[in-house]
Design a protein around this nucleic acid. Structure first.
Lengths: 229, 229
DNA sequence: GAAAAATCGAGAAATCGTTCTCGATATTCT
DNA sequence: AGAATATCGAGAACGATTTCTCGATTTTTC
């Protein structure tokens, strides 16, 4: 997040009813994509089963922790053997909602927005951009990486008619809240926020911050520490 | 993890000596950028002092937590008044190392890399791209957002001569480790990893994952939960 | 000038997440 | 077939982070 960063954990959780969201710890949620990535390479190498010992070793985690994380997705393993790789991938992907690809709108087709539109890899994670929006008239009517760019005034109507549920926000800080309001008016239920601003949403919408500036801060802080040794 | 993501907290911490890094909790580090952002808007509005009560309310956090976070940066407040906004911003920025801008290399000038190069905002967070590198010969010799793109073979020598300490990795998963090796050979001490792959580094280098796919996963998971109500 | 109100800062308590321990189970080896 | 080994899964122990409590301090009000 963001800078928003500020409150990532609290924030995203706070937006939903307590009971439902806190079921799975956020740290576990953060680790799950990593498992999938590792498992995909295993599958590519023809591996059929894998133990948490094995996963943990590669990812430098505690085997018990991996086991608990995997358990959240509902999979059960076999003692002395481990888990079926194929089944495990399917279990996590399904749990994370990567299977049913979601169509998304992107708001703010600047440098960052353009990059996000061009990042084909998101398809693997169940995200597909179907339209982009920008205030700048010179961008409207064009296509960026195969996605049409519209003016902001078209957003609400299009979102409603296309039944879009995900909005990706890559606008400057000032325009962030305003853009979020439009997205909500269009019926969007989830916002992936790349802007450095905390966004206020209603109870029917979730915001997750991309945390770009948070991780950058951790990097610079760590660099300072490591240079001073 | 992940791609990275997986082990962010553990990972970055693990790379440094225990004592130094664990001083400030990572959750606090993640929240600090958010404070700065909020404080900047306060300053813009002419506000001169602010209390943790005030900050916490806006960011939906616990006032005590905010107070503890701020204390890590070394600032001290005045009872009944709060903190001097200007001084507080300076304190956090200095703590996070945003003042002394760091020169960085970017590896992988694809869609994501291009976007990062064009994101002027990073300058505010003490990051400046001075060169980019890519395998693709058609990109070499050109400039992207004012930054020259070189072939990978120039990386090590240039990094050494320019005394670069930060590398930003936006290459596909397969090339990530290899690119990281080059960066380390060039003397780079900190890597901001946007690739969905865990990276192995020596004890003199830190890796911080950008966690793009982690936050996306949290978003999709939350969306699934909220849609099912 | 004294009383009231707001806020900081330090320490205690509670909560959350990670790590450890152990019994149960499936496989492999002899 | 029986013993040894590896791994899962559940619960306990531990550690870290968040939240609560309270005394001290400064400003404002009467």
């Amino acid at each position: 997040m963001t800078f928003n960063t500020t409150d990532d954990a609290e924030r995203s959780a706070g937006e939903l009813s307590e009971s439902e969201l806190k079921v799975v710890p956020e740290p576990s949620l953060r680790r799950l994509p990593g498992y999938v990535h590792f498992l995909r390479t295993l599958r590519q190498r023809g591996r059929e089963v894998v133990s948490t010992t094995h996963i943990a070793k590669d990812l430098r985690l505690d085997p018990t922790q991996v086991r608990k994380d995997l358990a959240y997705t509902g999979i059960i393993g076999r003692p002395k053997v481990g888990y079926d790789v194929e089944e495990l991938i399917a279990s996590i992907e399904s749990f994370l909602g990567w299977n049913n690809s979601s169509d998304a709108f992107l708001v703010g087709a600047g440098a960052l927005g353009t990059a996000l539109l061009g990042h084909e890899r998101f398809a693997e994670y169940g995200l597909r951009f179907v339209a982009a929006f920008d205030q700048d008239p010179s961008k409207q009517g064009k296509e960026i990486h195969g996605v049409s760019v519209f003016g902001m005034h078209k957003l609400v109507d299009l979102a409603r008619r296309m039944h879009i549920h995900i909005g990706v926000l890559s606008v400057p800080a000032q325009g962030a809240q305003e853009a979020a309001e439009l997205l909500m008016e269009g019926g969007i239920r989830a916002i992936w926020n790349f802007s450095p601003r905390r966004i206020e949403v209603g109870p029917d919408t979730v915001v997750v911050d991309a945390e770009l500036y948070s991780t950058l801060s951790i990097l610079k802080r760590n660099l300072t520490l490591i240079m001073g040794r």
